[in-house]
Amino acid sequence: MLEARLPSAVTLKKIIDAVKELVQDANFDCNDSGIALQAMDSSHVALVALLMRAEGFDPYRCDRNIALGINFATLAKVMKCAGNDDNLTIKAGEDADVLSLMFESTNSDRISEFDIKLMDVDADHLGIPETDYSATIKMPSAEFQRICRDLSVMSETVTIEAVKDAVKFIASGDTGSGSITVKPNQAVDKKDMEVTVTLQEPVKLAFSLKYLNHFAKASTLAGSVTLSLSDDVPLMI
């Protein structure tokens, strides 16, 4: 039996918005520590790993581990019906074949309830291996989102070059090329506006902007984003 209440639905709305274009059908793996999602995108090029800790819900109750197979397009449509400030309760019974969602407006004058059918999703256990990355860049997530959007006008690929005191995003295509250099800015007042480049060795790697733009949709969830790069292993964002 799972019953979890989120004080404001906006958090789950943002999460589903960020992953719905990457993940078709996947399991919410629920246990007493929270709700986890690990799924590759449909073209098996990217992995989404998400953990919503039990502490973020109040109350949170999960009697035994259950995997809720969800179609994310459906969940995204249902989440559109929730107001940002509504509190949201998700429930699944023992041998559940539906996930129940309830949205309650702040002054409880409107209560919406939806059931979405659950499906069997084959669960292969995936995760991101612990890696000692050559370069780790911390920067404002809105800035990263903007860089990915701006450079998409020039090319479908962006080369990220991390050197000692700067990180450069370069895009070159048939019509021309563009580059954006971001420099570290220690000692800023707002933590989220900080830019740091931690380098074991310089790296220069190319990535698909299609995926980076999808990942950047999660920017509204956190003010700061960390990019971790090494040769021959996937970029971690």
């Binding site: 992995l47 256990h125 995936l126 995760g127 291996p129």
Partner: peptide, 14 residues
């Protein structure tokens, strides 16, 4: 195809 099976291996090596 090679990339995809590399990635599946990489992510399931956890």
């Amino acid at each position: 195809q090679l990339l995809q099976c590399f990635l599946r291996g990489y992510f399931s090596s956890v």
